[in-house]
Write a protein that binds this DNA or RNA. Structure first.
Lengths: 165, 165
DNA sequence: TTGTTACCTAACAATCAGTGGTAATTATGG
DNA sequence: CCATAATTACCACTGATTGTTAGGTAACAA
């Protein structure tokens, strides 16, 4: 997405009013690589504008998505995640344990579908998701002080994964 | 997944009882390539066993997923879709308009992440999703002014929930 | 500066997919 | 046979997201 200043201009240019709350959301998203959910954006925004409502955050995220300034990702973490990086084509790594999403900036040029395999679909760009375990969750489950059950279940005990509820 | 008969044996072997309702779900899923939601499975099952409850369908789908006989897909259509095809590795085409999911049996052998790009993630198999418009929705939208704008503006605006009624 | 109008907040209801509980009944399989 | 799992109807609940209302504020064009 563009800078808060550019977004301000773009909002005005598209007939939207620019408010302190919206600019606050702009700033929260700027450079955020955590792929925050709406709730997470709300929490961060509240640190700047304490009274901003969840509704306004949803509204602004919706506007930004409509303008193509951010992308709304629905990749099985149970809620929509927002990605301010729409300039650079990329894919995603998703942690099965904690739901963390990381950008994967590798390009896969070989990802094209032979015409006869498309089944008549009109196709957009491919979205590649690698699911796995992030470094934090890897070390957490390998931590000897955590494994209280010797030879415990291979599922790593209680896996209350943030998969679709 | 295996045949209803094999699933019957497998359920017994794993301490599960085999009921008419469960076998009904087995039959519904057998050869189903529509990636049905739980509700859709329920609707189809009802045609065979009118009193089968949604709860039982969820329970059976959960069991089958646990056994690895079917796969639970969460690919942004608003609900979990179930895929009985777990034998053949494949990817998916998703219609942005109606939510239809089709198997894409193309293999992408070169789809691996360079070690330095994994960011410490422990990665599983890649999941590739191509979003677009299925043949039905392409012909249905008889918008004459729809000029092809390939690679055009990234106004990813069509981010509407394809949720059924 | 002023007036129109979009925007914001609070509070609450609703939706939708899915889970959980209960109690009563059914039926599987050792 | 019979213990026990499974099923059913019913209803409440979560969690993400949207909608509604009403009153107040603030943006921005004239």
């Amino acid at each position: 997405m563009q800078t808060p200043e550019e977004l301000t201009a773009r909002f005005r240019a598209t007939g939207r009013k620019v408010t302190a709350q919206r600019q606050c959301v702009f700033r929260v998203l700027q450079g955020d690589e955590s792929h925050p959910s709406a709730e997470a954006v709300h929490a961060a925004a509240r640190r700047q504008v304490e009274t901003i409502s969840l509704k306004t955050v949803y509204q602004t995220l919706h506007d930004l998505t409509e303008l193509g300034e951010i992308a709304a990702l629905d990749i099985g973490t149970g809620m929509v995640r927002f990605d301010p990086n729409v300039e650079e084509p990329h894919h995603h790594l998703v942690c099965r344990v904690c739901g963390k999403v990381s950008d994967l900036v590798v390009d896969f040029p070989e990802l094209s579908v032979p015409e006869r395999a498309t089944q008549g679909f009109e196709l957009g760009a491919p979205e590649v998701v690698f699911r796995g375990r992030c470094p934090e969750c890897r070390s957490r489950s390998t931590d000897p002080s955590v494994g209280s059950t010797p030879g415990g279940s291979p599922t790593g005990g209680e896996r209350d994964a943030p998969t679709s509820p």
